[in-house]
Structure formats: structure tokens, C-alpha cells
Design a protein around this nucleic acid. Structure first.
Lengths: 183, 183
DNA sequence: GCCGTCATGTAAATAGTTACATGATTAA
DNA sequence: TTAATCATGTAACTATTTACATGACGGC
């Protein structure tokens, strides 16, 4: 079967939820997947065009109640099958996460101890904000969708995000202490 | 001061070490930065060209002892200053790590429990391999460069990689158990 | 009438990967 | 002499971001 890129599969997946338009796809990704996926309109609209061309979804003008220019995309059988096939395919290799902070620290020799501390403190602060964001999203999901079949999986991904963020925070704290001691 | 992309700064940083040619830059990144940075020759050679055009490095034909076609790049004062400025600049926002496994799990509803388990087990296995790789690199660095000023910072970044990998492994184990229990 | 949000889309620029072409040097 | 590794580079492709253009709808 034909292969598409992960961005296309992500959109295919979102179309299984209540989000049916390009705009709503973007909203959901920004709100609920932002800790491990992001997307721009420059990707979404061309991808939706391809999805229709390939017969993976059909577009219907907005339902009577909505606005006139909204386009709703509904997965076809072929679209759902394509999604399932991709889901079942094991990933071939772990991606490399590009981390600017680690890249800078790698060359830490060329930076004063004070500036290195600022770098780490700043990173820690941002990780803590991220952690709290995940906690909020978690609470929202538990409140808003206590029974939804999807909710369970959304919470699993948030748990991952929290654990990785916490590991980063711990590293910041301990690395700062080590650097302070050693000078 | 003029801005370059992170790939260019990464190369500038590598040129402060013993690695002075495009080939060696690639080697070092593959060997020692692979857990948080990667690069291809298609980026390296054009970037080196730019670096010379901008006066950040000067190229000298290989030293007498080497091969005739090897080009060695040496940072200029301006190059080192440019590197330092970038190092001192705090990152504006955390990047989003794209994670294909989480993306698939997010749509876990459309996948059988068995296939979800395979997905997690496979991810766990790869994270364990990654963890062991980091331990090996760590041992190598401690053996080969016990005194080098850079080594300390290289070990910090490896510690980060290990912690994040371990957090991922723990998540895989616990999420698998939860899924098994709940069906 | 105006502002904020909803909504779709494109063009240009930037970033990164992959595949290829070429040739030198070294060790078995 | 031949295979592996060292070494440089480009072209085409794919992916992603950013900036822009356009307009509908709802509430004040």
C-alpha cells in the first residue's frame, strides 16, 4: 500500500475524532498533541487536498447549521484502513531529538559558569511550565471526557510527557549543583 | 550580529575541537552528539562554504602528513566570537519533540491490544539499546579523555540522554501493565 | 461599524534527507 | 589487487515554517 508521511497520517487520525475541518485539526493538535507533534496550515491544507485525491476522505460542505465556507472531511473505508495499517507498522528506528540546550552545553567550555547556570535555569523553568501545562490538560481531559474511548490513550501520552519533563528537570537541578561545586 | 541556523553553530562548535574537516565533523556528531543532534553531508559542505565566505573560519590544505584532498577549517577570532554569542543567547522556547510512537498510541482506539503491546515493547527495546549505547560512550569518554576540558560537558549531555531514556523505559513498562490489566 | 475568532488557502523561504558521482589512501 | 575507509561535493527531493491574502460570522 502507498505510503504517506507522518503528517498525513496524523491528520487521518484526527479526522477519526470530532474534528473534521482543517481549522479544527490544527486546534486539536495545538491543544492536545502539542507535546509530541505540531503542524502548520501550510502542511494541513495541501495534505487534506492529497487525502481527498487519494480517496482517503470525502469532503462535504458544512452541515446546515454551520458557516458556509467550512469544509468537513470524512474518512472513507480506505482512509480508515490506511490509518490502521500505519498504526500497526512498527517504527524502524528512534528519531533523534534535536536539543539546542544540550548542543550549547556540549561546548560549555567556551561559556562562563554564570552563563551556563542561566542556560540551565532557563531550561528548567521552561520544563516546569511544560509540566504544569500537561497537568492542566490531564485535568481537562478527565473532566470533559471521562468516558470517551480516546481519552485513555490521550492520558497515556501525557503521562509520557510528564515523565520526560520531570527527568529533564531533575537533570537541570543536579547538573547545576555539580557545576556550582566544581566551578 | 548576523544569525545563522543551529546546524551552522553546531559545526562552528565542532571546529573548536580536533575535528577540522567536513568528514571529521560528521564523524564526531555521529559518534558523540547523536543522542541530541544529527547532520548530513548535504548540510555540512554547504555550511562550511558559508562559514568561510562569512570569515568565520579559514581553510588550509591538509597538513603535510595528511592526504592531499583533505581541507582543514580553522576558526577565526570572528568565528569564535560568533560561537560565544550564540552560546550565551537563551533559547526562546522549548522545541516540540516529534514522537511517532506517541502519535500512534494517541489513536490507540483503532489498534488491537496485541498490536499496541507490540508497539510499546518495540519502543522499550529500542530505548534500552539506546541507553546501553550511552553507557558505552560514557565509558569511552572517561577512558580516552580523562582530563580534557570538553569531556565534562560531554558527560553532562550523556547523563541527560540516559535519564530521558530511562523515563521512557519506565513509561513503557508501566503503560504496558496498565493496558494488560484494563484490556 | 468594528473587533475577535473562525476559516481556507498559497507562495516563498528555509531546512533537511537521500542518492549519486568522484577519487585518494591504506591495509589485507 | 581489491576492498574498506577516507574524503569532498552536488542535485533533486521532501518537509516545514513563515508570511501573507482573503473573507465569514457573532457579539458589542
Amino acid at each position: 500500500m502507498k505510503k504517506y508521511n507522518d503528517t498525513t497520517y496524523a491528520i487521518l487520525g484526527i479526522l477519526t475524532t470530532d474534528c473534521k475541518s482543517g481549522y479544527e485539526v490544527k486546534q486539536l493538535i495545538d491543544k492536545s498533541l502539542h507535546h509530541f507533534w505540531k503542524i502548520s496550515y501550510g502542511q494541513i491544507y495541501p495534505a487534506l487536498k492529497l487525502i481527498v485525491e487519494e480517496g482517503l476522505a470525502e469532503v462535504s460542505p458544512a452541515s446546515s447549521s454551520g458557516r458556509s465556507d467550512k469544509r468537513e472531511y470524512h474518512l472513507t473505508e480506505k482512509g480508515l484502513e490506511t490509518l490502521r495499517e500505519w498504526l500497526a507498522k512498527p517504527l524502524d528506528q528512534l528519531p533523534t531529538e534535536r536539543n539546542e540546550v544540550l548542543l550549547k552545553l556540549f561546548f560549555g567550555q567556551y561559556l562562563s559558569i554564570e552563563k551556563k547556570m542561566v542556560l540551565l535555569q532557563d531550561y528548567e523553568r521552561q520544563l516546569r511550565i511544560r509540566y504544569e501545562t500537561y497537568v492542566s490538560i490531564e485535568e481537562n481531559i478527565q473532566e470533559l471526557y471521562p468516558d470517551e474511548a480516546d481519552a485513555k490513550y490521550w492520558l497515556f501520552t501525557l503521562d509520557y510527557g510528564k515523565r520526560v519533563a520531570q527527568a529533564g528537570i531533575d537533570w537541570c537541578v543536579e547538573t547545576s549543583q555539580l557545576m556550582k561545586k566544581e566551578g
